[in-house]
Design a protein around this nucleic acid. Structure first.
Lengths: 181, 181
DNA sequence: ACAACCATGTAAGTAGTTACATGATTTA
DNA sequence: TAAATCATGTAACTACTTACATGGTTGT
């Protein structure tokens, strides 16, 4: 469970409100650990209860903006967590299940999902490439930026690999479908 | 939610008991949609309730082996589901969160997780390569086998990409750590 | 008869999703 | 002053995990 530590990281980069965190997640850490605003608010509550962050607002101030910042205990906790080794979260890919189903059914209907997924991966790839051009191209990078770039490169590689796979699979299935006619 | 359809697929390949399904999952479909035996038993109950599979045992036969097979309605449902397009399940990668945390903390402690993950990905890669040699190398493949091979190739590509990334990241972080001494 | 294992489950808890509620602030 | 938007939440639900329970079969 990495959400609390993802939030600590983001809040260390810059203290802010829950909604602003939510927005920043959507175009940075959230690519690798997505979270809805509901989840973020709930988790911020837990972080505050643990004494890892503090907020600028009394209890029960619904509707009024709160700003959170990380406390020393929170930073300690993050440092402790970063050192830990952890198994990769098991991947779950419905497309692979569809292809296996296709193998027993003898149809070519998984083409729909393949097309959809191909578009999705290409879209993400484009987003990542845009970020790469905007933030990391043609200049000296600080140590922190090099690490951020590294993470982005992982995303680039992942999406490229998946898009390429969809492309190959699509070619194969389409050839079978056309041969049938 | 693809577990029911993964089970239908596996049961169509061969009717069997819950535990046998669980074991087969561990070395085939489970690579792409893992499931514990508890989950499988529960889901088999739902599938039977929906009229998609039937079992050879009366109610409340705890401890006695049941065998499940897919009913025509179950096959219909699977055919319907295969045609659907679906977003990729959002990836969650704690390692990327660690690297982002490292960027703000200025340490090199994510090396631990990087090593662990590198070993894990290489291990899986070796398993996949073994399956490739055993089941798909140097022979003509049926249509169904070609599809199974395709799915395996996705696994091979994914693990190779991730292992390669860990390797690169590890080299970078280790060089920083050593420069510090 | 006892252990080891095969086989099927129950129970409690967690992380995340979806839908909805409500207060505060800005803008037309 | 009404609508839109900003901002913070609650409630119900689902998939999955972890720990435990229990019955049946096989081998010594």
């Amino acid at each position: 469970m990495s959400l609390p530590h993802a939030l600590l990281t983001s809040l260390l980069e810059r203290p802010c409100s829950g909604l602003e965190l939510s927005r920043r997640f959507e175009r940075s850490i959230g690519f690798f650990w997505p979270a809805s605003h509901q989840q973020i608010y709930k988790e911020l509550g837990k972080l505050e209860h643990s004494g890892w962050v503090e907020s600028t607002a009394e209890e029960g101030a619904r509707g009024r903006k709160k700003s959170y910042r990380v406390l020393p205990e929170g930073k300690n906790e993050l440092q402790r967590w970063v050192q830990q080794a952890e198994d990769a979260t098991p991947l779950r890919d419905a497309l692979m299940v569809r292809l296996r189903a296709e193998a027993v059914l003898g149809s070519t209907d998984a083409i729909n999902d393949l097309c959809h997924r191909l578009a999705q991966h290409r879209h993400r790839l484009a987003i990542y490439q845009e970020i790469e051009q905007r933030d990391f191209a043609n200049r000296e990078l600080s140590r922190a930026e090099q690490l951020q770039y590294l993470v982005l490169q992982s995303g680039l590689a992942t999406e490229a690999t998946q898009a390429e796979f969809c492309d190959r699979a699509l070619t194969l299935l389409a050839s079978w479908r056309d041969a049938k006619d």
